[in-house]
């Protein structure tokens, strides 16, 4: 078994890890109870899966240059996946797309309530100012 074979198997195993995490993310999407929980499945496994695949591509190409070219892909995902999760989660929370009966602690409820009533008292467009104010 030559070094090439070993490297081939390692990169195939890394792809396997990525594929497994993709499946887990999909199953999480189906099985988790509400949108807020599904966001967990959409962020973490996918980022690690992408890291695994990127390393696999670089190993398969046997090239550092390929790895460097793929670093922006990782950067985009690592930085943007949490941002997307935050935007979607925020929208889901504010449009009541979650199951309150499943929450143990909810520190946000009181704060959103207060900010909303403040805005209504000021008799302005609730949605806009509330969001900008609390951002």
């Amino acid at each position: 078994m030559s070094l090439d074979d070993v490297l081939d198997i390692i990169s195939a195993l890394l792809v396997l890890v990525g594929a497994f995490l993709t499946l887990a993310a999909g199953v999480g999407l189906v099985r988790f109870p509400d949108a807020l929980a599904r966001l967990h499945a959409a962020t973490k496994p996918q980022v690690l899966g992408l890291i695994a695949i990127v390393i696999a591509v670089a190993i398969e190409a046997r090239s550092w240059q390929v790895l460097l070219t793929l670093i922006p892909v990782l950067l985009f995902q690592v930085l943007l996946a949490p941002i997307a999760a935050q935007m979607v989660g925020r929208a889901a929370y504010r449009t009541d797309n979650y199951r309150a009966d499943l929450s143990l602690v909810d520190d946000l409820a009181a704060d959103v309530e207060r900010a909303t009533s403040d805005a209504e008292r000021a008799n302005v467009d609730t949605d806009r100012t509330d969001r900008d104010d609390r951002a």
Partner: peptide
């Protein structure tokens, strides 16, 4: 990140459906 990914994977594949979540 590695731990988190496999933890979410385990939760998705093996965990109960009605997990208790929190906003902290």
């Amino acid at each position: 990140l590695t731990i988190a990914s496999f933890q979410v994977a385990a939760q998705a594949l093996l965990g109960r459906r009605d997990v208790k979540n929190s906003i902290i």
